[in-house]
């Protein structure tokens, strides 16, 4: 179809990494071409009329054409039929997007303020990146821990909001190997634009071996909590300040609070900042952004994470 090749050059959508992306591109290209034709007709007609019927004298006589029922019927009915055809095509594409094959592998996704967490059935957890096999349908079961987020993979043309208190699902079948961007597209506050993740598509065997290996995080149980509970999203380990202060060399130092008082960073300061973060805020960092972990961390989790922060020299 000639118009497909014509439109392919002009559609700037990212690489087609799934069959649905290909279907999506063909609908988009059809609409691009038909819009081009419609605008050419309308704007071209306007420019032609405007140039041809320029005002010659100040007493031009214009014909008294008040209406033309046949013409008006045509340009109401034809667009209606055209739009309805496009609607049906869009609907069929949406139908494919939303019917999840039964043999899909499941990955659980947790969105939280400014971090994506992925969890596999065998308990393997990791942040801001996840691996899927090529050519196998994958179903994402998603929920949010705080506010609305939205899981968006441009190369797969898929997007679904992630809602607290409820699960939403999304499926895709990657056809191309490689690494793809994942964005958050529902405004979620300070680092909404930093909430990016990497989606790696690998051959099936490589995926199986990757899934089996359990990477042991150095730094004991505290490191695991540092990743799972999302501290990594705001507190770095290399000294660079992010949303919150860095943990590197923080323990034992006196640090200035935003109300001017000087506080020694010790166990109970850390415990208080984890359980009730809004009481004290370090100078230069946004106030009331850190959620309280009251009731989310057991006693030994708390000591483990404090231990982890302590030995970040």
């Amino acid at each position: 179809m000639w118009w497909l090749s014509l439109a392919k050059a002009s559609s700037f959508a990212p690489t087609q990494a799934t069959k649905i992306a290909a279907e999506w591109d063909s609908l988009y290209q059809f609409l691009l071409v038909s819009s081009l034709v419609a605008c050419a007709l309308l704007i071209g007609g306007m420019i032609y009329f405007v140039t041809k019927y320029r005002r010659k004298t100040n007493h031009d006589k214009t014909p008294y054409i008040s209406h033309n029922s046949m013409l008006e019927f045509i340009w109401s009915f034809v667009p209606l039929v055209l739009f309805l055809m496009m609607f049906v095509w869009g609907w069929s594409l949406y139908y494919d997007m939303r019917t999840v094959p039964s043999n899909a592998k499941e990955v659980h996704v947790y969105g939280q303020q400014w971090l994506w967490q992925f969890e596999y059935k065998n308990g393997k957890k990791l942040n801001n990146e996840f691996v899927v096999p090529v050519g196998v349908p994958v179903k994402l079961i998603m929920t949010s821990k705080d506010v609305l987020h939205s899981f968006y993979v441009p190369s797969f043309r898929i997007k679904q909001d992630v809602i607290p208190g409820r699960y939403t699902d999304l499926w895709f079948q990657a056809e191309k190997l490689g690494e793809f961007h994942v964005f958050c597209t529902e405004y979620c506050g300070l680092d909404h634009s930093k909430m990016l993740a990497k989606l790696k598509v690998v051959p099936l065997e490589e995926y199986e071996t990757w899934l089996a290996t359990t990477t042991e995080l150095t730094g004991g149980p505290g490191a695991q909590i540092y990743n799972d509970k999302g501290c990594v999203a705001c507190h770095s380990l290399d000294g660079s300040p992010k949303v919150g202060p860095s943990f590197k060399g923080a323990f034992g130092k006196n640090s200035m609070m935003d109300d001017g008082t000087e506080v020694k960073v010790d166990e109970n300061y850390l415990r208080e900042s984890i359980v009730n973060p809004n009481v004290k805020t370090v100078k230069g960092f946004p106030k009331a952004v850190m959620p309280s972990f009251q009731g989310q961390l057991s006693e030994e989790d708390l000591t483990a994470i404090i231990e982890f922060i302590k030995n970040q020299k």
Binding site: W24, L31, M46, M86, G90, W91, L93, R157, I158, T185
Partner: peptide, 28 residues
């Protein structure tokens, strides 16, 4: 006339966004 030109483009892109299949990629 500028309105006619720009609103025509705004209108056709509006139809694109009305189709659910396309809006999934375009939304937000």
């Amino acid at each position: 006339l500028g309105f006619l030109f720009l609103f025509a483009i705004g209108g056709v892109t509006g139809i694109m966004l009305a189709l659910i299949g396309l809006d999934v990629h375009f939304h937000d």
